[in-house]
């Protein structure tokens, strides 16, 4: 495999692999509490961080991480306090983040619209050595959080009110989910781009819930689907010369459709079996004396 001998492809595949794990791992909690589009919102805000990174001539990954975390915390506070017209506040945050990024990028000497595009839609083959170090560190944080605290995060995303009454530090855990989602966005931005990040958080989870019955299986399958599409999408984009982000997302949608097609007859059979099990068990017996 000559593809593995190229240093830039080694970095690309490693980054893709880490995104394949982390995006569905945090995405499952967002989907569970029906916040599937939060990743998209953070992606918009991240652009301001990228622009700021260019303006300050520092690594866009770290600055974007800082800005994303801040944006995600603000979003979580808006959510938890349930302020009237929270949707308007969020819209301000999203589009302000987007516009701020474009503006900062144009002010910087090194930023260009070509640069903007690589962050918006991903450019996996340009991942640098420093980028990969940052991505590894951030991915480790995401994996440790989403797996290490899976029971607690499951509980707060499943029924927040109940979780508060168990005495869990729910506010802190909510912020942790927001911060982890923000970190995941910056891990994934070089691979699939800020506008497509959310797809990798949601689609693998949606695909695996077509088949899975438990949270644990959904989690494992979503990560498997994530890794499958990010790696095969990256390899495909190398051979066919198509953008990696778009390839990965379209493949994920393909997996979703395939699993849905498989799941429909499976679900019907399951339902039939349940109906069979719950049918009347009192059968007329021949020797009953009347």
């Amino acid at each position: 495999m000559e593809i593995l001998d190229l240093p830039f492809m080694q970095r690309a595949l490693l980054a893709a692999f880490l995104v394949g794990i982390t995006a569905p791992a945090i995405g499952i909690y967002l989907v569970q509490r029906r916040q599937a589009l939060m990743g998209d919102g953070i992606g918009h805000v991240a652009l301001t961080g990228v622009g700021l990174g260019f303006l300050l001539n520092t690594s866009p990954v770290w600055v974007a991480t800082a800005v994303c975390v801040l944006g995600a915390v603000v979003m979580e506070l808006i959510r938890s306090y349930g302020k009237a017209r929270g949707d308007i506040a969020l819209a301000m945050l999203f589009y302000g983040g987007m516009a701020g990024g474009v503006m900062l990028m144009s002010l910087s000497s090194t930023g260009s619209s070509a640069n903007l595009t690589t962050y918006l839609f991903g450019s996996i083959t340009t991942v640098s050595q420093q980028d990969i170090v940052a991505i590894c560190i951030l991915a480790a944080f995401v994996v440790l959080t989403t797996i290490g605290l899976r029971r607690q995060l499951f509980a707060i995303c499943q029924d927040e009110e109940f979780a508060r009454v168990t005495g869990l530090p729910v506010r802190l855990l909510n912020l942790l989910v927001a911060v982890t989602a923000a970190v995941t966005v910056t891990v994934a931005m070089r691979v699939v781009g800020l506008l497509l990040v959310s797809a990798l958080m949601v689609i693998p989870v949606a695909a695996s819930q077509q088949i899975a019955r438990s949270f644990a299986t959904t989690f494992a399958m979503a990560v498997a689907v994530g890794v499958l599409v990010t790696l095969s999408g990256t390899v495909t984009s190398y051979y066919v010369d198509v953008p990696s982000g778009a390839t990965i997302v379209l493949m994920a949608i393909g997996v979703f459709i395939a699993l849905t097609a498989v799941a429909t007859p499976l679900a019907r059979r399951r339902a039939d079996r349940t109906a069979e099990a719950e049918r009347c068990t009192l059968r007329p017996e021949a020797d009953v004396q009347v």
Binding site: I28, V31, Q32, R33, R34, A36, R151, Q152, F154, A155, C157, Q158, D159, F162, A163, V165, T166, G167, L168, V205, Q209, A212, R213, S214, F215, A216, T217, T218
Partner: peptide, 19 residues
């Protein structure tokens, strides 16, 4: 909730009051 869960997984959340 938004993601499938088994009866055991949901009930286990109640045990977090202790763990």
């Amino acid at each position: 909730s938004g993601v499938p869960a088994t009866v055991r997984e949901v009930v286990a959340a109640g045990r977090l009051a202790r763990t």
